[in-house]
Simulated scan of single mutants.
Amino acid sequence: MGPALLFAPADRPERYAKAAERSDAVILDLEDAVAPEAKAAAREHLVNTPLDPDATMVRINALGTADSGLDLAALARTRYRTIMVAKAEDPDAVAALADYQVVALCETAAGILAAPALARLPNVVALMWGAEDLVASLGGTSSRFSGGPKAGSYRAVATHARSQLLLSAGAAGKVAVDSIYADIPDVEGLAAEADDAVASGFGAKACIHPSQVQVIRDAYRPGDDAVAAALDLLAAADSAGTGVFAYKGQMVDGPILLHARATLRRAGR
């Protein structure tokens, strides 16, 4: 999965193939990206415009709504078996989707608090969080600061939710997916946030525009210097033959070696 997951409105079938070509996986969106009056047509497009099911997931509406039932009925007519459940909150309801691999989208206060239980479900393969719906569920107005020295950065509650979701996914051995970056022209802001996602342990990041895909890929792909440094460090560890050793003036132990191995995995080494 990932690292760059691109949302595509399910009511725009002419965009399906382009989104699939330009991303690592496409998320066909039956929820927020589709107006209520267009959802029925979007479901038919989903059925009649197939993509590779191994590189595609479908975001359905919140469980318990009439739309989610119609979404699942449409999905049954397709080969798609990976779904993103919007506003996931109820572990029992998600567990009932046993025929699907589920990405639980925790984007409400209840969803973030349920993240540990959701992550432990056998059919849940990943967790993702959403900032704006989360803040809206609390009665707030914005997940990010709009001015001053913190402009563009997350407010404390969003940062807390992001961290809690990452910890919940990691504790269960599941992938954590970082939220979208809505300011499409702000490439520098996206790059900084993607760099932080990689360093923190998110396995992928979602995006809403094809121009954001390469920025995310670049963040997840280690540079030649990083790969060389990881190889040198692991070679030094083999030579040292001890659990803890000094390397270039720094103490190296197990966690540092895990970081180096993670770098090589992202580089395909």
Rank of each mutant, 00 (worst) to 15 (best):
A73T: 09
Q214F: 08
M57C: 13
A25K: 08
P255R: 12
I180H: 03
D71H: 11
A191K: 05
D224P: 03
A194C: 09
T242G: 00
D52I: 03
A73E: 13
S137H: 02
D71G: 07
A176R: 05
P3M: 09
A191M: 04
F145D: 00
D238L: 11
V227F: 09
I60Y: 03
A117T: 05
S146F: 14
E31R: 13
A55E: 14
V85G: 00
I184S: 00
R79K: 14
G241T: 02
A74Y: 07
V227Y: 06
A246K: 12
T108Q: 02
L28A: 01
A171E: 05
I27C: 10
D225K: 14
G148W: 15
R265H: 08
T159F: 06
G140W: 11
A262S: 13
I216D: 09
G2M: 12
S68G: 01
A262T: 14
Q250W: 05
Q101G: 14
R265A: 10
D99T: 08
S143Q: 09
G173F: 12
Y80R: 00
D24Y: 15
H160F: 15
A204G: 11
L97R: 01
A42N: 04
L257K: 06
V157Y: 08
E44H: 04
L257Q: 04
V26D: 04
A10P: 03
A237H: 09
A237V: 09
R261I: 13
A158Q: 04
V252G: 00
D186M: 10
S163I: 07
A114N: 07
Q214S: 07
I112A: 05
H259G: 00
L134I: 02
V175D: 15
E193T: 10
A156F: 15
V252E: 00
T159N: 04
G148Q: 07
R15M: 13
P122C: 03
T263H: 09
G170D: 10
A40H: 07
M128D: 02
H160I: 14
A235H: 08
T82N: 07
V187L: 05
V124D: 02
A182T: 11
A41C: 00
F202N: 02
T78Q: 05
G223W: 01
T82Y: 09
P13Y: 13
V157Q: 03
V187Y: 06
